[in-house]
Design a protein around this nucleic acid. Sequence first.
DNA 1: GTTCAGCTTATTGTATACAAATGCCTCAGG
DNA 2: CCTGAGGCATTTGTATACAATAAGCTGAAC
Lengths: 219, 219
Amino acid sequence: MSRASDHAYTVIRGMILSGELPPGAQLSEEALALRCEVSRTPVRDALRRLESDLLIRRSESQRSFVADWSDDDIDDAFELRSMLEAQAARRAATRIAPAQLEALRHHNRLIGAAIAGDQADIPAFLEHNRAFHEIILAAAGSSRLASLLTRLIEQPVVWRTAQNYDRENLRRSHREHEELVAAFARGDAGWAASIMAGHIRRAYYAYLDAYTAQQTAAE
Amino acid sequence: MSRASDHAYTVIRGMILSGELPPGAQLSEEALALRCEVSRTPVRDALRRLESDLLIRRSESQRSFVADWSDDDIDDAFELRSMLEAQAARRAATRIAPAQLEALRHHNRLIGAAIAGDQADIPAFLEHNRAFHEIILAAAGSSRLASLLTRLIEQPVVWRTAQNYDRENLRRSHREHEELVAAFARGDAGWAASIMAGHIRRAYYAYLDAYTAQQTAAE
DNA sequence: GTTCAGCTTATTGTATACAAATGCCTCAGG
DNA sequence: CCTGAGGCATTTGTATACAATAAGCTGAAC
């Protein structure tokens, strides 16, 4: 999209994901316009997009607030994500191109490298993990599925999940990616879907564990 | 939403669904503003919403066109819809309130009445069918699932499908609704999901048959 | 006849002013 | 002290003007 509107979208999204704008905070179009150094018009555009991304909710009277996710919402989002990503894997298994398969191997090798040392390189892990899943979504060849899924991933809670992976979870994630590649290489749709469903489900429990530990530590 | 913006949304949406704006047609903000008797600002809002509804696609240079669905797109949409509506039924089975269950029975009775006579009352069928599925979606109690599903239903192709139902399909649809009610009454999530998946899948084949017949007739 | 440069025109993006609606706060009355 | 009505302040909605960009067309060069 255009420069100012894109800029506003990126800035506001960053403020939400970073926690600068906490869940429940009210967003004023004018305040955001000042902050982004653009007029209210592109800010309004950006807010609409963020609303469609489920990062923002709007009150009855059209005021905007940073989305506040309850435990049920999070559970719900992971459940849907598991289902849709499994579907993406199912479709990708019979459609993936050799070059895409090689790209998957490439990114998973880099994931392996990122978690190899004593100190895991989390940003690198996140980046290649994102690329890995993106290739599968592209290989699924369904713009509708892609459109639905992008509304579920890249949520604050999803991002924070990977931050909380411990060493064991990182390694398991890496191994599951290898299994996915194997399923794709065989063109086994059912296998690919099963692994992916479990893969996302485990990410959910990793999140839950980290969250529980955090809650306990806070007390 | 606000008056002018809502009005524009409704008018443009109607023009697309009715076929007045055929697939592939370019949409000019100014022309639509004249037609809706509002300024470009609310029209832009409406276009963004319609884009999120997948009724409109935008070119690289941000020009808007009525979405043109390929056979693959349609197949794709029904596949996702089947999966998500089944999930809604699964969740609804264990959450539905007695009043909602009764409402389902009510609407299905009216569906039965609409298709009873020699000449089926298609508008009444469509209306109560919509209400029936809406109650299930509400009973599922997942705003995310609802948000995703509304992007898949109410597409031109979905609407036209029901128009093409023959007598036998209408009756079968009515019976499947009865089975769904039975599954809900038992709280059997698996059963409800299975019936719903089949229900949507059959709608797809009804669409395909009607479409094929139409194509043959046109030759 | 074809191609490409440059201009013209159509279309969308942005800023700003003003209108409408909503929420909040104050103050009077009980 | 509580309650509610009124007005003030904040916020969003809409219209319009202008800027930027992309598409289409014309005409000249080859």
